[in-house]
């Protein structure tokens, strides 16, 4: 191997980082992305204000209706619980919808605009481009989740008292540990979105219409969420990507209960493997006609 070869090989990963950065910056500079992030930041504010108004007369908020963890009732005692409540509220729909939009648009949107052919003749390399795109969607999963968490933390701190945290299991831990657990929860939530990110990217490689890919991904999300609530279909439910999503609440127990979260991670890994390879197989052999 010549010296030049060695050099090319050693700088290649760094330059791929450049493509990833370019991807992420491009995604974040779209108005659509900023609007999605604004919606995500708005949800905790809405929940916070609603709870504040509801409990303004000293009463307590209604005992956590719905299937999700009963975080809402705990917000009045500790603003930190707004982080958990907001993530529980956005995880079923708002967050995956935002991911579906960004992932669905990733390849199809560029094909639609024609920029895909110029990236490929640059040459970005099909595998390298797809990996960069998936990495940027994953980064967006994390960014979206953190936007919700930070907005919730700020709103919670402004509207409610902060202090030692009484976990769901009854144990009380210092605020710093509560904050750490909130960060962990955010990371787990972001990881829960990797499956739909891979699914959205795969759908994105199937079409030249960004809108179609986004709509299909979000439509699938809604369908799967509905199927997940029909008792008669319980046989398939453990294989649906949102099935274990709300298991992150187990992080707010002492001791932490890992079983469902492990199932969640395994399921997400399965979706990433299946739809990631499908996206790769499709994208690397596809005729780019747009």
């Amino acid at each position: 191997m010549s010296q030049a070869d060695t050099l090319t090989r050693s700088v290649w990963p760094i330059r791929s980082l450049g493509l990833f950065r370019s991807e992420l910056v491009t995604v974040l500079r779209r108005w659509r992305t900023l609007a999605l992030l604004a919606v995500l930041a708005g949800v905790p504010v809405l929940i916070g204000i609603a709870v504040r108004i509801e409990t303004g007369d000293g009463g307590s908020a209604g005992g956590g209706g719905g299937g999700g963890p009963a975080f809402v009732a705990l917000i009045t005692n500790n603003g930190l619980f707004l982080v958990f409540a907001s993530l529980a509220a956005t995880l079923p729909f708002f967050l995956p919808m935002a991911i579906g939009v960004v992932a669905g648009d990733a390849v199809a949107g560029e094909a639609n605009a024609g920029t895909l052919r110029y990236l490929l003749v640059a040459p970005a390399g099909r595998t390298r481009l797809l990996v960069s795109k998936y990495a940027s969607v994953l980064a967006f999963c994390l960014i979206g989740t953190l936007v919700v968490a930070v907005s919730a933390l700020v709103t919670g701190a402004l509207l409610f008292p902060l202090g030692d945290v009484t976990l769901l299991s009854g144990t009380t831990v210092p605020f710093s540990e509560g904050l750490l657990r909130a960060l962990l929860v955010a990371l787990v939530v972001a990881a829960s979105l990797t499956g739909i990110a891979a699914l959205g990217l795969f759908i994105s490689t199937l079409t030249n219409s960004g809108i179609a890919a986004m709509a299909t991904t979000v439509g699938l999300l809604i369908t799967v969420q509905i199927v997940d609530t029909i008792p008669q279909l319980h046989a398939v439910q453990p294989y649906l990507f949102p099935h274990y999503w709300l298991s992150f609440a187990d992080l707010v127990r002492d001791p932490v209960y890992w079983d469902e979260m492990r199932s969640n991670f395994q399921l997400q890994a399965l979706y990433v493997a299946v739809f990631g390879s499908a996206a790769w197989a499709r994208f690397t052999t596809r005729d780019i006609l747009a």
């Binding site: 330059r15 370019s22 110029y118 990236l119 970005a124």
Partner: peptide, 9 residues
């Protein structure tokens, strides 16, 4: 800048 970043070389 974006098109140039796509070229690994």
């Amino acid at each position: 800048l974006r098109f140039d970043a796509a070229d690994p070389t």
